[in-house]
Design a binder for these strands. Structure first.
Length: 201
DNA sequence: AAGCTTCCCAACCGCAAGTAA
DNA sequence: CTTACTTGCGGTTGGGAAGCT
């Protein structure tokens, strides 16, 4: 695959976005919609590379973003999804409306990961650290095998076209607010981690 | 109050995948 | 089929805020 620099670095701003830049970006997307990130800055006179514009919009400016603290249910769901999907933050985010992959990744690294470690659990495998180490050794001796096809057991991600949870008084799992996504994930409480079990650590 | 440390999150970087020419 | 370009993803980092001494 060919690769090229995403932008002419000499002519672009870096670092924190100013209010004016935000407003320009929002105005542009209101008129033209999302997409064509590469040509967006040029079209709108923004001294930012397209990548940066896309990131700013997705992670911060999008109107449907929830922001604020993660609820216990969200945290629980993240742990469950992570145990199935691993570090596939975009897939996890697709199942948490209003949350971005970046936000979830940050939350995982700063909160959940630490909680799991302090309980002696391997955040990568969701198993006790000693077991995880043993298993790593055993796997090294075994022939490699493909991962489970998770798409088979996880329902499609939340999509904007679907009925909005707020309108239904339900979350994206089709459940009343306040429940985790066990059924949605076909987990059925099969012994996976529950964030509540980490409380008080 | 000042200096230091830790925490958190927005943003950057590099790579891979997708796709148009 | 190959190349060039764009988009999206995951890992990492910089710096401001908050907490501590």
């Amino acid at each position: 695959m060919g690769r090229s620099p995403c932008c002419e670095k000499a002519h672009t701003n870096k670092g924190a976005w100013t209010k004016e830049e935000d407003e320009r970006l929002i105005a542009h997307i209101r008129v033209h919609g999302e997409g064509c990130w590469r040509s967006l800055p040029k079209a709108d006179g923004l001294l930012r590379c397209g990548k940066s514009c896309r990131l700013r919009w997705i992670n911060y400016l999008r109107p449907d973003l929830k922001r604020g603290n993660f609820s216990r249910d969200e945290e629980d769901l993240i742990i469950k999804l992570h145990s199935l999907l691993g570090n596939k933050w975009s897939l996890i985010a697709a199942r948490l409306p209003g949350r971005t992959d970046n936000e979830i990744k940050n939350y995982w690294n700063t909160h959940i990961r630490r909680k799991l470690l302090s309980r002696g659990l391997d955040p990568a495998k969701h198993r006790p650290l000693a077991t995880a180490v043993k298993e790593a050794g055993r796997r090294a001796r075994e022939p490699s095998r493909p991962d489970l096809n998770l798409e088979l057991c996880i329902s499609p991600p939340y999509q904007e076209e679907q009925k909005k949870p707020a309108e239904l008084g339900e979350n994206m799992l089709g459940e009343k607010e306040g429940k985790c996504g066990g059924e949605f994930l076909r987990l059925g409480g099969g012994g996976l981690l529950d964030c509540r079990s980490l409380e008080g650590s």
